[in-house]
């Protein structure tokens, strides 16, 4: 097994384990922390795929900003462990069964799809994940979506402020 495979499996196991912990943690703060670990694992995958820019942006945006916001909100409203509402066991069980069957269904689907059989991906080579080509593409072909997204973001910010001010 090559070093890349080792890393891949380690990171995958890490990601899935942490994701499960997000689910089962009773305390939302713990959930947030586990989710941050998931994001780190995913960033690790990005690095494996040599998508450096996305890896670092993933950490800055998700781990550094979004999750801080989550943490902030949880601390602000200070939800206690015991006051966290719990669904009934049956509902939970149903949820797990539904998620599991969803997974099974999709896996089965993937197994049957012929187009992707035997196709490999390029792991650490290739330059498209680096900042230079990405920047070129972003500011040439995709400049209009880029600007639109910035407007979207601005309006979201304004919206958040307005909602918060109420």
């Amino acid at each position: 097994m090559s070093i890349i495979q080792v890393l891949f499996f380690a990171l995958s196991a890490f990601a899935i384990g942490s994701a499960i912990m997000v689910l089962v943690s009773k305390n939302p703060i713990h959930s947030v922390l586990w989710l941050i670990l998931v994001f780190f694992a995913i960033s690790g995958h990005y690095i494996l795929l040599n998508a450096q820019f996305l890896a670092i942006v993933n950490i800055i945006v998700y781990a550094g900003a979004i999750m801080v916001l989550f943490l902030f909100v949880i601390m602000l409203i200070n939800v206690k462990k015991d006051s966290e509402p719990q669904k009934q066991f049956l509902v939970k069980l149903l949820g797990v069964v539904a998620g599991g069957s969803f997974l099974t269904l999709l896996v089965a689907l993937v197994k049957q799809t012929a187009q992707i059989q035997g196709r490999n991906l390029l792991m650490k080579d290739g330059v498209i994940g680096l900042i230079h080509p990405l920047g070129k593409a972003l500011f040439n072909e995709y400049v209009v979506p880029f600007e639109i997204s910035s407007v979207l973001f601005l309006s979201a910010m304004v919206g958040a402020v307005i909602i918060g001010k109420k």
């Binding site: 890349i4 495979q5 891949f8 995958s12 990601a15 899935i16 994701a19 499960i20 997000v22 689910l23 939302p28 959930s31 998931v38 995958h45 989550f70 909100v73 949880i74 939800v79 966290e84 509402p85 719990q86 669904k87 509902v91 939970k92 149903l94 949820g95 797990v96 539904a98 998620g99 599991g100 969803f102 997974l103 999709l106 896996v107 993937v110 992707i116 035997g118 196709r119 490999n120 991906l121 792991m123």
Partner: peptide, 30 residues
């Protein structure tokens, strides 16, 4: 590396997310 590996990984993560949405009642966790 076969693309299936990544597909399976992402499916697993996605399904965990789906399960979470279904089972948790805390809006923040959802």
């Amino acid at each position: 590396m076969p693309i299936q590996y990544y597909i399976y990984l992402c499916l697993a993560l996605f399904s965990i997310g789906v399960t979470g949405v279904l089972t948790r009642r805390n809006a923040i966790v959802v």
